[in-house]
């Protein structure tokens, strides 16, 4: 296989959630190499770590994000894809420090104060990671101060906030307001079941999407990725 074919195959492994050769899923790829082995082969055949990221992992995860948005796949499929991506990323991590892999930037994610819902925010993090972002996940019940501290620690970051309760939307409003006061240039994305475009606009957030892929597409417009 050429490196181009290997990268295409790797993208398919991510899209289909084929983690490694031992993985019996999906059944039509049983016995074949998965994301783990193909990443090793691609790097050995001369693909750069950046190629692996941009031409395989991001391609595969973008398809996953689109299919998830279009309800062609569901959360378990997305989590299997994330597993496959992680199996590949293990081989790229050593190149992060040497800058041979350039990520788009950092996104600080958190579920706002008073809200303990974690899963939706984690799914967003997985898809954004697959789009070439480094994710700093602050967890749930994140205070405004914790968001402020994270932005101070990661000065060029973007911030993603999640709220799943109507009662915690006010906490989101407070956090957005304080962040914009102290860091007006920091882009803030918001999401969560009870939110709307109108609410996001009213509280001063920069972007709202009902699904993770919407955030990916927005971020692609403001921070294009060079191969």
């Amino acid at each position: 296989m050429t490196t181009i074919e290997l990268l295409a195959s790797l993208a398919t492994c991510v899209e289909r959630g084929k983690v490694n050769a031992k993985s019996p899923f999906p059944p039509d790829l049983k016995g074949q190499d998965g994301a783990d082995e193909i990443t090793v082969r691609a790097l050995a055949e001369g693909a750069t770590p950046q190629d692996v990221l941009t031409q395989a992992l991001m391609v595969g995860m973008n398809r996953v994000g689109e299919n998830f948005r279009d309800k062609k796949i569901f959360v378990p499929d997305l989590l299997m894809a994330a597993r496959a991506m992680s199996a590949s990323m293990v081989h790229l991590k050593p190149f992060f420090k040497s800058s041979e892999v350039r990520l788009r930037g950092t996104i600080v994610l958190g579920t706002v104060a008073g809200d303990l819902h974690d899963i939706g925010k984690k799914l967003v993090g997985m898809i954004l990671e697959g789009a070439g972002w480094s994710i700093v996940d602050l967890g749930t019940d994140v205070s405004t101060q914790k968001f402020l501290d994270a932005v101070k620690e990661h000065p060029d970051c973007l911030v993603g906030m999640s709220a799943l309760l109507t009662t915690t939307m006010s906490a989101m409003e407070e956090s957005v307001k304080r962040l914009k006061e102290e860091y007006p240039a920091t882009k803030i994305l918001v999401g969560g079941a009870p939110l709307t475009h109108e609410f996001a606009q009213r509280i001063g957030a920069d972007f709202y999407s009902p699904d993770p892929q919407g955030a990916v597409e927005y971020l692609n417009t403001i921070t294009p990725m060079s191969a």
Binding site: P24, F25, P26, P27, K71, F74, V75, P76, D77, M80
Partner: peptide, 13 residues
């Protein structure tokens, strides 16, 4: 509940 009421269920599930 996982969303597969009208969709093919992955074999692992």
């Amino acid at each position: 509940a996982l969303g597969y009421a009208d969709a093919p269920v992955p074999e692992y599930l």
